[in-house]
Structure formats: structure tokens, C-alpha cells
Design a binder for these strands. Structure first.
Lengths: 273, 273
DNA sequence: GTCGTTTTGGAATTTTTATTCCATTCCTCG
DNA sequence: CGAGGAATGGAATAAAAATTCCAAAACGAC
């Protein structure tokens, strides 16, 4: 067990976080899980039992106890005392806070945030409600059977495509991001046993449509993540996933697209085992 | 004993206070002491034991228990739950939810989507609730005054960085994305009149930290978009924006980060006119 | 592979905390 | 001023939580 190298416990929240940041690295798996969960949700400590917190972190209670020791406390209760003393319920609930923010004059950053958060939530709700489950299942099937998943998404869709590439990598599914760097199109990287996942929102990029067309011509399955049923990309695809993104003013967020992308990858990862 | 004239317990803080005000008058001495103390210090309920609270009110614990009953709760724990949940929402723990998910049709894509949508909504709510407006205003100020905004975010943060680049371009603010292509670091593109916006989540990329350090050393303002107060990036920055991303299982979405990014850019765009 | 060490999960134990119960006190009203 | 009922305090009990401990698993060095 990593020996507590300092014997005194942190006596302020700041000290606590400093110490936490200092030790997190170099901690074994379970203890690191504790450290990371605590870092992210330290607000819960004041009002949670060991069991609650441990469940949140995904570790057994005894691991959390060890963690408290390493932080320099004598036990969980000791650590909790620090947070209970500093506890100020301060923040009002979400609805109230949102209203406060919106009431500012239109231009303030806080008011903007409120609007975008609201738009994001609306998008997510609509996504859950309107998504065609058959299409999703079909998409998962097609991508699950492919050797390599090719990804393309440019301009506004590029963040989604790069996120997909990241998560596919995490779940160890071979994926290739066609990013257009150097105007190299890597068209010939598409093999007959692969599949293409294309993302495009209006105005649809030529390059994305071209690659989708190419894949289709060669008989590869194409999955589309797009914004409208009538999108030119939809016509080229075997499974079409629609992202109902709400917008605020001229700006559209990507919350729904990102969330759908994550779902898709995790489901494909699960299918492949 | 005053008979509880309503059998259901208050289910919101507002109901609680209404009820408290309604019954306080006409309560015998000790119970009134309880009522008055609770009215004054209701914020302590979430983090106190019966004994603590009773001591504060100057009554024996049993009196406080009676008080809880009169308020319509089954006991102190029941009353406490109301206060704990009001301030720390989202207590349904992940362990349970993961299990439900597995029990239910082995994690069908549809069920997964529901979970990720939920995590995304939670993230957005927490973002609205917890974001430090001062930090946001400061960030907008710093970036608004810069000639060119440099952006860096790698791995999981890369989609956010590329999204920022896209939206900055839309609002016609000169921005440069440091994407690490070809391992060219473009460090010398940072001019004294520029600013850096760095995005990093655990585990923090060396390259991102290095560039932030570099910018700081040269006296450029650094704005951080990160996940924890103790993040190494936070220490290098003049304004720190925290993104409280909820995760589901091992997976974390980017809804909150994307939304905050959009807000930031639009606000900066507005400042520059 | 095998040995020694570190880490882990869970059951057993202890401590703390909540809750009940009842004998006593304190009112109030006749 | 005394009887009856409400209110009270504290001791006893039950429940929940924290903490310890140890056998088993995982890991790392050889």
C-alpha cells in the first residue's frame, strides 16, 4: 500500500484538492477510481455515506476507506467532516438558476449559456423521442460486421467525426478518419469488407458526398448521420440516423450529434465483444 | 400531541417551508424551538445528525424526532433525504443503473441511447448550475482583446477544439487550431498580443500542457476549459472554465464541453462586434 | 512458471446514529 | 387545589453506518 507520506490531513478544501492532484498519479486502479470520482464530485461527500460514494465510484466501500487514509484522514468520517463544515447549499436548483441567467440583458455570456444549455437539452430530448430504433439497430449491425469503419465528416461535422474516431479507438474497433488533410482522399483505403460512416449537415460538403457515393458504388454499406430525411447523404445510405438539433439564433449546437455518435460506437463495440 | 393534520410529507423545499410556517404557531414550547431553529438554519439539516441539530436548537433528540413526525415525515432520516436530494441531484447511482441496463435486454442500442441522453442532460444542467460566471466573463474579456486566438485540445478534447475553430471562423474571429498534425508545434505562431484557449481532460496531454506553459511564460493570457479545479491546466491559466461532464459507465460525453465552447465563441464574437 | 509483494473484495465487527418507549413533569381547567 | 391530559427528557433499543481484518486475486521480478 502506498504509504501516506504526509501525516497531517488537509484542513481546507484547497489543500484537499492540491493533495488529491498530487497523489492521483501513481495510485493503483481502484484507488485511482476513488480519486477521480472524488475529484469530479467532491460536492457529494458532505451528504453521502461511504456506501453511496463507493457505489458512485464503482468500488467497494473498503477501497474508499483506504483512499481516505491515503489522503491523510483517519477515516471517512474524518474526511467528511471537512466537507460538512465547508458545506454551503448556495446554488439554487437548475430551473431557478436558468431563469436568473436568462433574465440578464440579452448579450451577457451567462444569458447566452442559458440559451445554449436550453437548446442542448431540447435537442437531447427530441433525439431520445424521435430516433428510429430500427435504423439504429441496422446501423449497429452494418458497422459491427465491417472490418474497418471509415469515418468522414467535414466542417461542422468534423468534430463529430473526430470524436467517433477517438471513441472507436477506445473500444478497439479499427477505424479510419478521412480528414482531408493535404487534400489526400485515401479513397482506395476502402476495402470491400469495410463500411463507411458519413456525417454531414446542410450545407453538405462535396467531399463527404463524393466519398459516400464512391463507397456505395463499390458496394460498401454506408451509414449516415445527418440532419434531414431529404439530405443528399440520406439517398446514398443503407441506414440513416437523424439528428434533430435545436438551434438558438444562427447557432446550432452538436450535443445531440455527439451523444448519438457515442451511443453508436459503444453499441458497435458491444456487438464486437 | 398535535395530530399531524396532513399525512403526506412535503416533497419540495417550498412545500417544506410553507408547512413549517403554517404549523409553527400553536406548537408547544420545545417543538416550537425546533421549528424556529429549523426555519433559521434549514441549511444545516443536510449535513447534521439528529443530535447535532437538537443541540443547536437546545432540545433533546427525542423532541426533534417528534418535530419531524409533525412535519409529516416518518423520521429524521426521511426529512434529511429531502434536503440532501434538493442540493445534490442525480443521486440514483451508476451501479444500479448499469445493472438495470444489463438486466434489460442486454444493453440494446435504444436503451444505451436513453442512458447517454440522460447523462448529457445531467451534464448540461450541472453546467448551468455550477458555471462560474466571473470566470466566463473574464475568459470572454481575455479572448475578446486578443489579436489571434490559439486553440489546442488533443485526444478527447480535440473534437471540442476543432469545433471551436469552426465557430470562431464563422464569427470571423482569427483563430488558429494547433492540431499536432505532423508533429509540427507552431509554437512560434504565438505572438505577444494573442491569447491561448486550451482544452484538456484527464489524462492531460503533455503537448497541451507544454503549449499552455509556453504561452504563460511568454506572458500571453491563457484560458482553460478543463474538468477539475485541480487539473494541471488550471494552474497555468488566467481563467478556468470547469465542465462537469457526467459519465455513464466508462464513457463520458462532450455535451457540456461543446455547449460551453459554443457559448464562449459567440460571446467573444459579440464583444468584438 | 514460481515466489513474494501489493492490491482487492467482502464478511465480521465496532461505532455511531436514529428511533422508540415510558416514567415524570408541567399545564389547564374544573 | 387536584385530576386528567399533553409534553418532556432520557434511557433502552433498533438500525445504519463506518471501520477493520483477512483470505484470495493480481501483479511483478526473477
Amino acid at each position: 500500500m502506498p504509504v501516506p507520506d504526509v501525516l497531517s490531513a488537509p484542513s481546507t478544501l484547497e489543500e484537499f484538492h492540491d493533495r488529491l492532484a498530487a497523489i492521483t498519479e501513481g495510485l493503483p486502479k481502484r484507488l485511482r477510481q476513488c480519486a477521480e470520482f472524488v475529484a469530479a464530485r467532491s460536492d457529494r461527500i458532505a451528504v453521502s455515506t461511504v456506501a453511496d460514494l463507493a457505489a458512485g465510484a464503482g468500488v467497494p466501500p473498503s477501497a474508499l476507506m483506504r483512499f481516505c487514509r491515503i489522503m491523510g484522514f483517519t477515516g471517512y468520517s474524518d474526511m467528511q467532516r471537512l466537507f460538512r463544515e465547508a458545506y454551503v447549499p448556495g446554488l439554487p436548483d437548475y430551473a431557478t438558476r436558468l431563469k436568473t441567467l436568462k433574465d440578464r440583458e440579452g448579450g451577457s455570456p451567462g444569458a447566452l449559456l442559458a440559451e445554449f444549455v436550453d437548446a442542448g437539452r431540447t435537442s437531447l430530448e427530441r433525439l431520445a423521442k424521435t430516433l428510429d430504433e430500427d435504423a439504429l439497430n441496422r446501423a449497429v449491425g452494418l458497422l459491427g460486421r465491417a472490418d474497418t469503419v471509415h469515418l468522414i465528416g467535414l466542417r461542422r461535422a468534423f468534430p463529430v467525426a473526430s470524436y467517433l474516431a477517438y471513441v472507436f479507438d477506445k473500444v478497439q474497433v479499427p477505424a479510419m478518419l478521412h480528414d482531408g488533410v493535404g487534400l489526400l482522399d485515401h479513397r482506395f483505403a476502402l476495402r470491400a469488407t469495410d463500411a463507411l460512416l458519413a456525417i454531414a449537415f446542410a450545407p453538405y460538403s462535396e467531399e463527404t458526398l463524393a466519398l459516400a457515393q464512391d463507397a456505395r458504388t463499390r458496394g460498401l454499406p454506408v451509414v449516415a448521420l445527418t440532419d434531414r430525411p431529404g439530405s443528399p447523404l440520406a439517398r446514398l445510405s443503407d441506414a440513416v440516423l437523424l439528428v434533430p438539433e435545436a438551434d438558438f439564433g444562427a447557432f446550432r449546437s452538436l450535443s445531440a450529434a455527439i451523444t448519438l455518435a457515442l451511443t453508436l460506437v459503444v453499441a458497435v463495440g458491444a456487438v464486437r465483444g
